[in-house]
Structures are given as structure tokens and as C-alpha cells.
Design a protein around this nucleic acid. Structure first.
Lengths: 204, 204
DNA sequence: ACCTGAACACCGTTCAAGT
DNA sequence: ACCTGAACACCGTTCAAGT
């Protein structure tokens, strides 16, 4: 049964399975992908450039879930905010994914295109040339940190019994119910950051 | 030569070597630590609770490099800012370390103590109980994202030749020399965030 | 071109045996 | 208590062989 008439494997099936494993266990393994697809481990290597190639597949996958068109046709504040929410939503759907993607630099053309668009947006808004990368990097730092926060279990924010931290415990208890700590923090941080960009713009 | 009169291994030597490897290669391996220390792999397991135990050692190590006393004896804005710089400096010294530490929740008593202190600081400054965790989470998100940014090679910010991104290239070229993109972005973001906290405080 | 089966180097972990 | 030597399961990767 070498070389079936219809291919058993393709990039989509590999990416789907890898993402399944990441969602279920926090990581993926080439042999485990092969097992789930009922195929030999070596077969996967005929479609993909090793494990790093599969990571790139996942990077592309999450990239398609982020809606870059949100950057178009609206004021820059609204554009950045909408993009930020879309970005975070993509990682909220796969909380463990961000950890796998922090390894390698972002060089995919589609990602570079998004940055290019953001630069144009900020320039048209009137930001000074030296200010553009500073604001976009600050923006990206927050997006990264917020994405990582999604992978942090809420357990992380319960005070261990053996430690005395009464005010922390009280602050945690004082959180409004409904939307979580992480959601509110993200919303607040994005607002603050964009307000900060605004004031930088006006002071120029 | 089983059981020498003077122990060949101890936690400090294991942590030192692991950190060396992380700095040099971006990761560590139990056998590689053993090789560097001229010892069998199995020996390491007599001192440490497996690979995760070594990660905890590294977490503790970076924890000691962050100066939590900076939170004491000054206004909250200055305290948060100083702590943020100390935090980032600790990871700047070991840029690859942050990736290893994002896996497990922070439950070390010393870390909880820092959060407890921050909560008290914010409460004494007059922040509403519901606002405290929101601001601290936003603060932490930025610290995490900024630490990850330190591991991103500047190469990440050079436009690939095959992609057309003229404005991005120009914005990168417009950056002031001297301190890098990452440093300026961090400084800016921290200022903006703390200003935002300030305004939240006044509007209460 | 696509899959199999076998192989190799390497990692994380355990355990009995020695002092 | 601390180290060795050997063992095991598992992973990433390669390659000749088959259709």
C-alpha cells in the first residue's frame, strides 16, 4: 500500500491535526499527528519541512483568522482597536498556540503586509516618522502579552493557601463577575494605549 | 566512584549550567547539563524534580534578579515604573529565558508576595477595589510582551527583499539610532500605561 | 509523487547497584 | 545521601524500497 491513488495526507489535514493536539494537550508531536491520521510518521515529512514546517503551518492558520481588513476604511484609532480585538480573538480560540509561535521571527509576506498597512495608517494619521515604529512596537507588545495571558489558567490568580496575601485575595474577589479579569484588562490596556498614541499625535 | 566525599552537584551549579545553555542555545537539556558538569545524566535527578524542576530553578533565579524593594518608599507611579524597568532588565540579560517560563503558572510565594505588595500600593494610591486587578493585569501583559520582544532578533524587523513594504522600510530607517526600537517602545508604553492609570484614578 | 518499514541519534526518566 | 551504568519509552529525522 505504498502510494495510494488518492493522497492520504495534505497540508490542511496535517495543520488541522496539529492544531487539535495543541488545543487538547498544549503541544503537538509529529508521530502523534501521524497516528491520528492513520499513517506512518515518515509520511508526514513528504509534505512538510519537519516540525518547524508544521509550526509555520499553524502560524499561517492563525494568520488567516486575524482579519486584517479591519484596518481599512476607518479612523486609525478604530482601526487599531478592531485589529487588536480580532488578533486577540484568534488566540483566544487556541490559547496554547501563542507559545509555539514566539520562537521564530515573523517573516511571512502576509504578516509583513499587515505591518506595512499599519505604518501607512499611522503616517496618514500624522504620526512623525520616528514615532511610527515606537507606537507599533508598543502595540504589538501588548498584543503578545495579552495573548499569553489567555493561556494562563485562572488558577494562577488564586492565592495559594500557604501564602498570606490578604489584599491580593481581596482584589481578586472584588473583580466584577461576568467577563473575566483578562478581558477587562485587555480592553482597558488597549484604550489606554490608543489614548496615549492620540496625545502623542496632538503634542507633535 | 559512587558517592564522592564532596558532592559533585548542587542546585546552584545545575541552575548556572542550565542558564548558560539557555543563553547560548535558547534551551537546555538534562543530558547536556550533565555533560558540562562531568557527571551522569541520572545524577541530576537526585537533586532536582526532573526537567520541570530545573525550569523552576530558573524561574527562581530570575526572580532574585528583579528588585522588588523598588516598590517601597516612593509614589506608586515611580514604584511601578522602577519595578517595570528592573523586571525588563532581568530578562534582557537572558532574552531566551522568558519563553521557558511562560508555561507554568506563577505560584512561588516570593512572586505572590510581589503581587500582594502591588495591590497594597494601588489601594493606598486610591484605586477602587474593582480597578486594582485590571490595572495590574494590564501592567503585567505589557511586561510579558516586552520581555518576549527582547528575544526577537532585530532581523525580524528588516523587510524581506522579496516583499514590497516601502513605508515599513522607511519607518524602520527613521528610527533614531542609539537605544533600540525595543527600548524606546518599552519606555513609551510604560509611560502611557502609568498615565492611563493616573487618569483612571482621578476620574473615580 | 507518496507511503512504508527500518534505522539512528537524542531526550526524559527510572532503578538497581555501589559507596 | 549521592553517583554510576544500564535500561525504556518516545521524539525528530533520514533513507532505501515499493507503487
Amino acid at each position: 500500500m505504498a502510494r495510494p491513488r488518492k493522497a492520504l495526507l495534505d497540508l490542511d489535514r496535517i495543520a488541522d491535526t496539529a492544531l487539535e493536539l495543541v488545543d487538547e494537550t498544549g503541544d503537538f508531536t509529529v508521530p502523534e499527528i501521524a497516528r491520528r491520521l492513520g499513517v506512518q510518521t515518515a509520511s508526514v515529512y513528504h509534505h512538510v519541512d519537519g516540525r518547524p514546517g508544521i509550526v509555520e503551518l499553524l502560524r499561517a492558520r492563525v494568520g488567516t483568522e486575524i482579519d486584517a481588513t479591519l484596518l481599512e476604511g476607518r479612523p486609525w484609532e478604530s482601526a487599531l482597536r478592531a485589529f487588536a480585538y480580532s488578533y486577540r480573538a484568534a488566540f483566544a480560540a487556541h490559547p496554547h498556540l501563542i507559545r509555539l509561535l514566539t520562537g521564530e521571527p515573523v517573516r511571512a509576506p502576509s504578516v509583513v503586509a499587515v505591518y506595512e498597512r499599519m505604518v501607512v495608517l499611522m503616517e496618514e494619521a500624522g504620526f512623525a516618522p520616528e514615532a511610527v515604529m515606537v507606537t507599533l512596537t508598543a502595540f504589538e507588545n501588548l498584543l503578545f502579552g495579552a495573548a499569553l495571558d489567555l493561556a494562563a489558567p485562572e488558577v494562577m490568580w488564586t492565592v495559594p493557601a500557604e501564602v498570606s496575601a490578604p489584599r491580593l485575595a481581596a482584589a481578586l474577589a472584588a473583580q466584577p463577575t461576568g467577563t473575566g479579569r483578562a478581558d477587562r484588562a485587555f480592553e482597558f490596556a488597549i484604550n489606554v494605549l490608543i489614548d496615549g498614541f492620540s496625545r502623542l499625535l496632538k503634542q507633535d
